[in-house]
């Protein structure tokens, strides 16, 4: 597979996941701000911006401004709209590799963005975020249903998994920032669409230990950090059919594997006690994996600038 195409697929995976997760996070947090009379809008918005890596914003922030920055800014690939546009741009360059149905869905989503914006004005942000979640689910479904399980699929799922680890780690950070109060776990679990599953698993008990355990370590819930790391790990292993005899073949595998075992073999209590640093290590892990994958698979995919020269 062409390095450039592999890179595009990897980023389609990342951007679509980013769009969906950002939509989920914003949706639930904004909802809570409205529903909870004791929340200070300014502080809550600052905290949200901080977690999403947009601390540098100056001036007073409001819920509407957060929606503008993290939801609708088309030039920011970390906003919902920007991520969808970036995913579509990547798919445009990899069009013969993604299935036609996936491309059409991404393209139709992109064409639907102006309408969706109007919907924000008419029906509020919730309708918009729900639409984004649905579009992303359709896309995930089509990825599943129409893409061969070849290298391209591996890169796409790898990107998705790396992004998911990153986003879930950020999401958990909002809890750390909120000071660890119980209602914020509710928010977090809702963000991940994990609320019902969690309740079923732990029979309604809502304490820190269980909630953190669930989002970090659950083997079966696909949005847990552990599940996403495991998926990334198996994608990386499948990309290297020839794994040799000693250890693993690539840097990326080492980084992901270390991170996964670190979660797996430390007890939930220990992890919770040190949650802040566990999360920042996870975020760092994601960018290291990203670099390692780029180095190994996406070599020199930018154009060369030539200069002409002549001598008499």
């Amino acid at each position: 597979m062409l390095s450039r195409i592999a890179e595009s697929l990897y980023w389609i995976g990342r951007y679509v996941e980013r769009a969906e997760d950002t939509a989920r996070i914003l949706d639930v947090h904004l909802h809570r701000m409205l529903a909870d009379p004791w929340v200070d809008e300014q502080t809550a918005c600052r905290s949200l911006l901080g977690v999403m890596g947009a601390e540098a914003i100056e001036g007073p922030v409001s819920a509407a401004r957060v929606v503008g920055l993290l939801g609708l800014d088309e030039h920011n690939p970390s906003s919902v709209v920007g991520a969808l546009a970036a995913a579509r741009e990547n798919a445009r360059g990899a069009r013969e590799t993604v299935s036609s149905e996936m491309w059409e869905t991404l393209n139709a989503t992109w064409h639907g963005l102006p309408d969706a914006r109007r919907r924000v004005e008419q029906q509020g942000v919730h309708a918009f975020f729900r639409w984004v979640r649905e579009r992303c689910s359709v896309l995930a479904g089509l990825t599943d249903a129409t893409m061969s399980r070849d290298e391209g699929w591996l890169f796409l799922v790898l990107g998705r998994s790396v992004e998911r680890v990153d986003m879930t780690a950020r999401l958990l950070s909002t809890h750390v920032r909120a000071g660890g109060s119980i209602p914020s776990w509710l928010t977090l679990l809702r963000s991940c669409g994990a609320w019902e599953t969690y309740l079923r698993t732990y029979r309604g008990s809502l304490d820190d230990r269980h909630a953190a355990e669930f989002l970090l370590l659950d083997r079966l819930f696909p949005r847990s950090v552990f599940a996403a790391l495991s998926t990334a790990e198996s994608c990386l292993a499948d990309l290297e059919p020839d794994h040799g005899r000693a250890g693993v073949a690539t840097d990326a595998q080492r980084i992901v594997g270390r991170s996964r075992t670190n979660l797996e073999f430390r007890g939930a209590d220990e992890l919770m006690a040190d949650l802040g640093s566990v999360l920042s290590v996870l975020e760092r892990t994601c960018s290291q994996v990203n670099d390692a994958v780029s180095r190994r698979y996406f070599r020199q995919t930018s154009a060369v600038l030539w200069v002409s020269e002549a001598v008499a």
């Binding site: 597979m1 062409l2 390095s3 450039r4 195409i5 592999a6 360059g93 069009r95 013969e96 290298e151 890169f155 990309l239 698979y297 996406f298 070599r299 020199q300 995919t301 930018s302 154009a303 060369v304």
Partner: peptide
């Protein structure tokens, strides 16, 4: 077949190749 851009190709000693993940 692959859809390549110029930057995916490299020509060394009159042999043309595309840069792939492998």
């Amino acid at each position: 077949v692959e859809l390549v851009e110029g930057r995916d190709l490299v020509c060394v000693g009159n042999e043309v190749a595309m840069r792939t993940t492998a």
